[in-house]
Every structure is written in structure tokens, then in C-alpha cells.
């Protein structure tokens, strides 16, 4: 069972692809089917991209830290950024309306919530924003 994996990555879009591949492999190693592992990696990376953009303002010097742990029946991802933003509790439950609907951005959390079944935002012990994503294992 995977325990205590920590990835510290810069807020740099060029690392997204390699981290996504890594998360996919973590999923497969933990017993997620190859098909679902892609969904898992997309969900995690949507949250990571949000952390880079909203939490760290796209500053490559600021890191996003991903803590990965497997527990019986679930994989847990804690995704920390350097910001103190506290997303609205309703974030990602509804798509935008009007202009927001035709915006080319702003759907990441909505997609992550739908793929992951469980995604919540709060603060880590240092008072920085932490997203918790749970992926059930069968």
C-alpha cells in the first residue's frame, strides 16, 4: 500500500503533463483500472492547476505540494498551495451562466468534483489552502 508520497512542484504549467502521468501510475499501482486512472489523474491535475493559478498566482517560485496516501478502500490526495484563498463552499457545484458559460476557463473544480466523487477545500495546519481529494478503491 502506497504511503507518504510527497511531490513538491513549481507553479509551472510545463510540469503538469509529467505529474499527471505519475498520478496515473499511482492509481494503477493502487488497483485503479487503467481507464479510471486517467480520470483520477485528470481530477487531481485540475485541482493542482487551480492551486498553481489561484493559490500561487502562477509564480514558478511558489510550490504546490501533493501528499499521496493509500488507505483501505481509498486513495487520498492533499494538495497544498502557498495562498490563503478559501474557495466558496459552492465552488465547482454549478457551471457558470451567461458570459461565464462561454469563457474558455473556470471549469476545473467542476470537472474534478464530478470525477473524484469527493473534493473539499480548507486550510492546512499552516493556514494555507489545502484541497482534499478522495478516490475510492474497490
Amino acid at each position: 500500500m502506497l504511503k507518504g508520497i510527497v511531490l513538491k512542484i513549481p507553479s509551472d504549467g510545463s510540469v503538469v503533463e509529467s505529474v499527471q502521468i505519475f498520478v496515473e501510475k499511482v492509481g494503477i499501482t493502487s488497483g485503479v483500472s487503467e481507464e479510471d486512472a486517467t480520470g483520477l489523474s485528470i481530477a487531481v491535475m485540475e485541482v493542482v492547476k487551480n492551486a498553481m493559478e489561484h493559490g500561487n498566482g502562477g509564480d514558478p517560485k511558489k510550490a504546490v505540494t501533493i501528499y499521496i496516501d493509500a488507505f483501505p478502500g481509498r486513495l487520498q490526495f492533499l494538495i497544498d498551495d502557498c495562498g490563503t484563498w478559501q474557495p466558496d463552499a459552492d465552488l465547482g457545484h454549478e457551471p457558470g451562466e451567461g458570459e461565464a458559460l462561454i469563457s474558455s476557463r473556470g471549469r476545473g473544480v467542476l470537472i474534478a468534483r464530478n470525477l473524484a466523487r469527493w473534493l473539499d477545500y480548507g486550510l492546512n495546519p499552516e493556514g494555507k489552502t489545502r484541497a482534499t481529494l478522495i478516490w475510492p478503491l474497490s
Binding site: T38, G39, I42, M45, E46, K49, I102, S103, S104, R105, G106, R107, G108, L110, I111
Partner: peptide
């Protein structure tokens, strides 16, 4: 197409508009 993320959707929306 098996999968699409928000960036992929964004490109489609941008192409559409």
C-alpha cells in the same frame, strides 16, 4: 476522444466563439 479536461474544453469553447 476518450478523455478531456478543462483545458481541452477551453480550446473547444474558444474555437466555437
Amino acid at each position: 476522444v476518450a478523455w478531456m479536461d478543462s483545458s481541452g474544453l477551453g480550446v473547444l469553447v474558444s474555437g466555437h466563439t
